[in-house]
Design a protein around this nucleic acid. Structure first.
Lengths: 251, 251
DNA sequence: GAAAAAATCTGGTTTACACCAGAAATATTT
DNA sequence: AAATATTTCTGGTGTAAACCAGATTTTTTC
């Protein structure tokens, strides 16, 4: 089944820490790294591991949380623990959209529009767009998948003056492409910001994740040639879904 | 002292989740965000909070772990929980070293050399440098601080052929500057990679952090004009110490 | 007053139960 | 065979109690 060495894995530990849960962690980690447990594989249940490792369930869970923080495993709501697929590499300096860089890495991207509507700009957002508070603004909420796993939820704000009626278009694809092709709006500057966060209630619900789990918050502001803000995007990512990679040369 | 509303904070919760520990989290989070608990402030002890919140210690700890993952608080080994200072903004596209961008943000950077030695290149590292396995290589281990808090530990590899005797120099400063000023080696390309990780035994020990806590792994490869690898740097960061920000324009 | 020893406080870890709600599998009914 | 009800399984949460080892503070000793 998995994990059933009685207590033999107690010995080869580093004497520095005497943390049982890190032992359990190591056992599982090794099985994943060795490929014994394949990507996406379903781990045995916590109670099975409890019996197999002779550790209390709380200890087993501590180990699972640790592995989750490391991005090695993840959980589906109440269905179980799974081996995490490899993360996708993202280079913020490249002018590539989600669909593009995900498929370039041999993974299957998918975008789903959750909702579109016209709102009146909240103060904070209005400031970014340099428009009056409560001015009209489009809001698009989307969910994106990699290989069938929901990895991020995003809320995009667009200025209706730059792209009137954009909500009528098909938004399952690159929004930047739609803006370029239908409105002649070209993005020439991107401001990207990333930081760890806790997933908000709605984000975690949309990602089928337990509320409050750590995630990655990415904010992106896109500008056009004349310096106008075209798009303000707030993305909540699974923390284990991407890796950042930047390649820079002096010009 | 702090947190002593008997059970009044039970009401204003979102009815979706009935997670007690998120209630405790919210109370503490609010006190931090409102500024009632200042940056760097020492939180009451877990046992005090246990009594004050009427929740079991395990529940209190769950809340603390949550806040830690969010980067709002951190802990010193066995001394207690503290409010986390604001994170530092790092822009991988800028040609600025640690000392430079940290002080530019009004924070006090500090670098401490832990060890320097000559090693024979492990296979993986040798590949990066395009040298023979076991070829000589310099290894520098440093620890860096922001406002007195250790935030990262790094291991730098340097090719002795490019910078013979570099270990004799003062390495408390920017290594890139030393290479430039004393060896005429200029870095013109940087390859940076970031991903969440679990802090290794030695990293966590050096950072005075409980072993196994999540962190951020940053790898940097620096190239000179002729495409030679000048420097290979592996950095283990506290996950709450930095924020990534990139500003890109089409050329 | 300074150094050393002792008591106390703090997080760190583990155990063992108990109960809940959603997911999944199974048995039942139509 | 398909739709439906039921049972079982899975993680999610909370409690209470112990014990450890390093940090810190207090007390004692010199």
């Amino acid at each position: 089944m998995a994990i059933n060495k009685p207590a033999s894995w107690m010995e080869p530990r580093n004497p520095a820490d005497n943390c049982h849960y890190l032992d359990v962690r190591d056992v599982i980690a090794k099985r994943i790294e060795s490929g014994e447990l394949e990507k996406g594989a379903h781990l045995p249940s916590e109670r099975q591991m409890e019996a197999a490792t002779l550790a209390a369930r709380g200890t087993v869970r501590a180990a699972l949380f640790q592995l989750e923080a490391e991005g090695l495993i993840y959980r589906k709501n109440r269905s179980g623990w799974y081996v995490a697929p490899p993360s996708v590499v993202y280079d913020p300096t490249r002018w590539e959209g989600f669909m593009s860089y995900v498929s370039a890495q041999g993974r299957a991207p998918l975008t789903e529009v959750l909702s579109t509507r016209e709102i009146s700009a909240p103060t904070a957002v209005a400031e970014i767009f340099s428009i009056a508070p409560n001015a009209p603004l489009y809001e698009i909420r989307r969910r994106r998948y990699i290989d069938g796993r929901a990895v991020l939820i995003e809320k995009i704000h667009v200025d209706p003056r730059l792209a009137p009626g954009v909500l009528e278009h098909n938004l399952d694809q690159s929004l930047t492409a739609v803006l370029r092709d239908h409105y002649g709006v070209t993005v020439i500057r991107n401001q990207v910001e990333m930081q760890p966060c806790a997933l908000t209630q709605d984000a975690s619900a949309a990602l089928c994740i337990k509320s409050g789990l750590p995630g990655l918050l990415m904010r992106r502001i896109s500008y056009d040639v004349s310096g106008r803000v075209v798009e303000y995007d707030i993305e909540h990512w699974r923390h284990d879904a991407l890796k950042i990679s930047v390649d820079i040369r002096i010009r």
